[in-house]
Amino acid sequence: MKPFARIILFLCAVMMLTATVDLPDWADPGSPASTHLSPGFIEQGYHETATPNVVTAVLADYRSYDTLFESVVVFAASLVVMLVLRRTSTGTSRIKHFRPKREGRDTILRGAAQSIIPVMQIFALYVLFHGHYSPGGGFQGGVIFGASFILLSLCYSLKFAMQRFKEKMVLICCACGALLYAGIGAVCLAMGWNFLGYAGLAGLLGVTDVMARSHGILAVEAGVGITVMAVMVSLYYDLASGGDMEEGL
């Protein structure tokens, strides 16, 4: 099997590498990808959504249906990991082959964590809510916020982190973030627009269609942020403890 796989892979690699001759030159502004759709996004995006960060505008408005399912993908991942791994019985002890040094959690580490974690969390919120004007948005903010809990768990202990962010709460956050996103879509539907047509929020918020889109983007980014934050924490809780929530990394 192995030599066979190697030969096939090598042949495919050679074929595909020679075929790159046909691709447009790298970074050519006249290539089809750069001339067909993207000028539309760049030139109209700002006028239609009032969001200078074009990536955020496209992600959360033009292709918001994709992004909805993207947050659902991570939600699905946390569900799957929990269903596969989570055990309530703590009797079966598991052999840890590789055990990181417990004594490493000294005062300096805890002190550093104490000073870093609040800054991380504020930065995460900044990234989330400033996504219209600078790089960042729901995912990045959510991951950073989730990473702050992971850091807490690494520097203190899993139990300590779980006292602050309980497992039940994590799962509720996972579902609520995606529900917020889909709920905004449904509100737009109820206002007589298509699903996820944020212009439907204009009547509720008392702003113009363009500003309604901008606010809609912010709201769905918040939803994505909540889901992603909770999912990252949930993945860590389950995987680091092997499913019994006793002891982390």
């Binding site: 990808a33 750069s34 000028p39 074009v54 991942a77 389950d238």
Partner: peptide, 29 residues
């Protein structure tokens, strides 16, 4: 349009990165 990079692939990749980490988590579990 010539002053900015094409945003559409970035959007697709953001989605694909998140899908990737989801699959990674499930595989590890």
């Amino acid at each position: 349009a010539t002053a900015y990079a094409n945003p559409l692939p970035h959007v697709l990749i953001l989605t694909a990165i998140v899908v990737g980490v989801a699959v990674l988590g499930v595989a590890l579990a």
